[in-house]
Amino acid sequence: MPLARAGAEAPDSLTAWTDTYVALAVVGVRSVEVEKKIRMHLGRFREYFERTYGHERITAVTSRDVAGWRDQLAAAPPAGRGLAPATVNLHLAHLRGFFTWVAAHDPAALPHGNPTKGVRDLPLPALEPRALDPAQVRTLKNVTDRVERFRQLKGRRAVARARREGRPPAVHRHARPYRDRAIVFTALSTGLRRAELVGLDLAQLHPAEPDKLRTAKRARLVDVRGKGGTTRTLYLSADARAALADYLEHERPGDADPQSTALFLAAASIASRRPGGRLSPRSINYLFERLGAWHDGEHPDEQRKLGKLRPHDLRHTFGFALAQATGADEYELQRRLGHQSDRYIHRYTNPPEHIAAGYVEDL
Results as ranks from 00 to 15, higher is better:
residue 1 M to T: 07
residue 5 R to P: 00
residue 6 A to Q: 04
residue 21 Y to S: 02
residue 26 V to S: 01
residue 28 G to P: 10
residue 28 G to H: 07
residue 41 H to W: 14
residue 43 G to C: 05
residue 44 R to F: 10
residue 48 Y to E: 10
residue 49 F to E: 03
residue 50 E to Q: 14
residue 55 H to M: 09
residue 58 I to F: 01
residue 60 A to T: 10
residue 61 V to P: 00
residue 69 W to P: 02
residue 77 P to D: 04
residue 77 P to R: 01
residue 79 A to M: 12
residue 93 A to N: 15
residue 97 G to R: 12
residue 103 A to I: 09
residue 105 H to L: 08
residue 111 P to S: 14
residue 112 H to F: 06
residue 112 H to E: 09
residue 113 G to H: 01
residue 118 G to N: 08
residue 119 V to Q: 01
residue 120 R to G: 11
residue 123 P to V: 05
residue 125 P to H: 06
residue 131 A to L: 06
residue 132 L to G: 02
residue 142 N to Q: 14
residue 142 N to M: 15
residue 144 T to D: 14
residue 147 V to D: 04
residue 154 K to E: 14
residue 160 A to C: 12
residue 162 A to R: 02
residue 167 R to C: 07
residue 170 A to F: 10
residue 171 V to H: 12
residue 172 H to R: 07
residue 174 H to D: 04
residue 175 A to Q: 02
residue 185 F to V: 08
residue 189 S to Y: 09
residue 191 G to F: 06
residue 196 E to S: 04
residue 198 V to S: 05
residue 201 D to Y: 02
residue 203 A to G: 02
residue 212 K to I: 11
residue 213 L to C: 12
residue 220 R to E: 05
residue 220 R to D: 06
residue 223 D to T: 10
residue 231 T to C: 05
residue 233 T to A: 03
residue 235 Y to C: 06
residue 237 S to C: 07
residue 241 R to I: 09
residue 245 A to S: 11
residue 245 A to E: 05
residue 249 E to Q: 15
residue 252 R to E: 08
residue 257 D to Y: 04
residue 258 P to K: 10
residue 259 Q to G: 11
residue 260 S to N: 05
residue 260 S to Y: 03
residue 261 T to V: 13
residue 262 A to H: 02
residue 262 A to S: 00
residue 263 L to T: 12
residue 266 A to E: 00
residue 275 P to E: 04
residue 278 R to Q: 08
residue 284 I to Q: 08
residue 286 Y to S: 12
residue 298 E to V: 03
residue 301 D to H: 10
residue 301 D to W: 06
residue 307 G to M: 00
residue 309 L to F: 04
residue 313 D to C: 11
residue 313 D to Q: 11
residue 314 L to Y: 06
residue 319 G to N: 02
residue 321 A to P: 02
residue 324 Q to G: 08
residue 324 Q to K: 03
residue 325 A to P: 15
residue 327 G to L: 03
residue 328 A to H: 12
residue 339 H to C: 11
residue 339 H to A: 11
residue 340 Q to H: 12
residue 346 H to E: 13
residue 346 H to W: 03
residue 349 T to N: 01
